[in-house]
Design a protein around this nucleic acid. Structure first.
Lengths: 140, 140
DNA sequence: ACGGTGTTGCAACAAAGTTGCGTTTACTAT
DNA sequence: ATAGTAAACGCAACTTTGTTGCAACACCGT
C-alpha cells in the first residue's frame, strides 16, 4: 500500500479550511509516514535537507496540528514532547510504550486499560493515559 | 494525628546512613507533610522564608531523595517534574490524577490498572504508569 | 576540637520552548 | 492573471527548567 503522504496531508489540511502552507504539509506528511511519536528535534533534523524550516515555525505548526487534532502530544520522562499523527480511529484513550533505555515511544493500539478505583469527591476524569515502561526489542 | 515531620525526616535519612543536612531534612519533611506531588518551584518558594536554599542544592537533594527511594518523580504535560514522598507501601505500579486546568497532581493509591494487550515481539515491560486526566474538585 | 569527605553555593551553561515584530506567502476577489 | 490582505513565517531575544565545574563549607567519626 503505497500512499502519497504529501497529498494526503494537503487534503487533510484543506478539508480543515486552513492554509496549506508548505511547512504544514511537509510536517504532517512526515508524521503520517511515521508510525511512532517523534520529537521536535527529530523532525527538525529530517527536514534540514529540503528547504529548511525555522525552529519556531516548527513549534507553531506542531501546536497548530495538535489544536486541529491531526496530531497529539506525549510527554515522557525526558520531559520532551513527542508528536504522533492521529491516524484513523485513534480515540482519546490510548496507551504508549516507552523504552527506558533509548526513550523511544510507540503507541500500543490495542488497549484494554481501565481505571477502576474511585476518584476523590468532586473529581472528574475525561482522559486516561497509560504508559508501559520497559525495554524495546533493540535495547532489551 | 500530629506528627513531627522534621524528626521523621531526619530519622529516615540517618537510617539510610547518609548525612542529615538541614536542607535534606527540611525538604523531606516538607514532602512528607504534603499529600501530593510538588514541583521544584513550589518547594523553593515554600523554603524561601527560612534560611534560603540554593536552586541547585534543591535539585541535587531531590535527585538524592529519589535515588534513595524516599521520593519519586512524576512528569506531567507541562514538562515539569513533581516530587512526592514515598509513604508506606507505594509500589512501583501507581496511578496519578492530573487536573488539566490547574495541573495539580495527586496520587490515586487504590489502583486497579492493568495492561492486557500484548507488546510487540522482543519488548519487555517492567513498569506501568497510569494517569487519569480531568478536573479536580476546585477546578471542576 | 579536628580533619577528611560529602554537601553546598555560585556562576556559567544547555536544552526546550515562547514572544514580538517586521517580512513574506497563500488564498480570495476582482 | 493580478492585487490586496490576513495568516504564516523567520529572526532575534527571552524564559523556564535543569545541569556541570569548582571552590568553600559543614557534618560526623575520631
Amino acid at each position: 500500500m503505497v500512499i502519497n503522504f504529501q497529498e494526503q496531508a494537503e487534503a487533510m489540511i484543506r478539508r480543515a479550511g486552513d492554509r496549506a502552507t508548505s511547512g504544514r504539509v511537509r510536517i504532517l506528511a512526515l508524521l503520517l509516514a511515521e508510525h511512532r511519536a517523534v520529537t521536535h528535534h527529530e523532525i527538525e533534523d529530517r527536514l534540514s535537507g529540503e528547504h529548511r524550516l525555522d525552529r519556531v515555525t516548527l513549534y507553531r505548526v506542531l501546536e497548530w496540528l495538535n489544536e486541529k487534532c491531526f496530531v497529539h502530544r506525549v510527554v515522557s520522562d525526558d520531559r520532551v514532547w513527542r508528536f504522533r499523527a492521529n491516524v484513523e480511529t485513534h480515540p482519546h484513550h490510548h496507551a504508549h510504550f516507552e523504552c527506558t533505555r533509548c526513550t523511544k515511544v510507540i503507541c500500543l493500539d490495542d488497549l484494554k486499560a481501565k481505571y477502576e478505583g474511585p476518584l476523590p469527591a468532586g473529581y472528574r476524569s475525561h482522559e486516561i493515559e497509560l504508559t508501559v515502561k520497559g525495554l524495546c526489542a533493540e535495547c532489551g
